[in-house]
Simulated scan of single mutants.
Amino acid sequence: MKITRTAAVLGTAAAITLGGVVGAAAENYMRPADSENPIAVAGCVIRFDEREGTKTIPRIHANQSHMCVGVTDVEVNEDGDLVVNSDKQGAIVSLVVSPDETMSKMGLSCGGSGGIGHTTVRCYDRTGKHVRADGPDIYNPWGNLWLSWFIWEK
């Protein structure tokens, strides 16, 4: 009985201590919404309208109607994912990857990962099959992939 009671007391003390540590750590990375927050907004449109043979070449689509802020270049990694490189450093507050109506009509959905220096974007078709960013199934002269980042400037 003495061992069980001691274990229970130690377990409770550890839980309280760890709970305090986790709670304190979480508080350091949670802030109220405030107009004084040091948040930078970045965004860009990526288009899949160029080809070399059957290979699609994703590119930054920037012109008088489409601004690109914070993105330096795009590439395709060995897994066929789009890698969007940026010039901004900081903690990611939010990342949005949104196929436009043309890509949605093609049945494509995409999601992003990362965001500090680069974001990896992977797209899928309606059946859940991975669609390579340099493959023939993503090519479209009018399809846009919209990307937005909200970055906490340190």
Rank of each mutant, 00 (worst) to 15 (best):
I39V: 15
Q64R: 11
P58Y: 03
N28V: 04
E27V: 06
L10W: 10
T4N: 08
G80V: 06
A25Y: 12
G23E: 10
G117S: 08
D134K: 10
P136I: 07
D87S: 10
K154C: 00
T17W: 15
I39C: 00
W146I: 13
D81G: 02
V84Y: 02
T54V: 00
V41W: 00
G11A: 14
A26H: 15
K129W: 04
K88G: 10
N28Q: 11
R47D: 05
T72N: 09
D137Y: 10
V74F: 02
G114E: 08
R122Q: 08
L10C: 07
S148G: 05
V131N: 00
G19S: 12
M103L: 15
R59T: 09
G135Q: 06
T72K: 09
D134C: 06
S98D: 07
T17R: 12
G112P: 03
V97G: 04
P38Y: 09
S94Y: 14
L108D: 02
A33L: 11
D137M: 11
K2H: 04
E153V: 13
P99F: 10
I57N: 04
Y124S: 10
G135M: 02
C44Y: 01
A40S: 14
D73H: 10
G90R: 04
C68Y: 01
N85G: 02
V93F: 07
E153P: 01
T120W: 01
I16V: 15
A14Q: 14
K154W: 15
I46C: 00
S65Q: 11
C123M: 04
G111C: 02
R126P: 00
G111W: 10
K88T: 15
T54N: 07
A7I: 15
C44H: 02
G114I: 06
G70S: 11
R5Y: 08
T12M: 11
V76T: 06
R31P: 01
T72R: 01
D34T: 11
E36R: 11
E50D: 13
S65V: 10
V96Q: 14
D81F: 07
R122G: 02
C110A: 13
M106S: 03
C123T: 06
G117N: 13
Y29Q: 03
R126D: 08
I3Q: 06
R31G: 02
T6W: 13
V74E: 01
E27G: 10
K88M: 11
Y29S: 00
E50C: 05
V69Y: 01
S148M: 04
V96L: 15
G11R: 11
G11V: 03
G53T: 13
S86M: 14
N63I: 07
G43N: 04
A62I: 08
S86E: 02
D137A: 11
G11S: 12
G23W: 12
I60E: 00
P38Q: 05
D49C: 12
E153F: 09
V22W: 12
G115H: 01
R47C: 02
T6Q: 04
C68I: 03
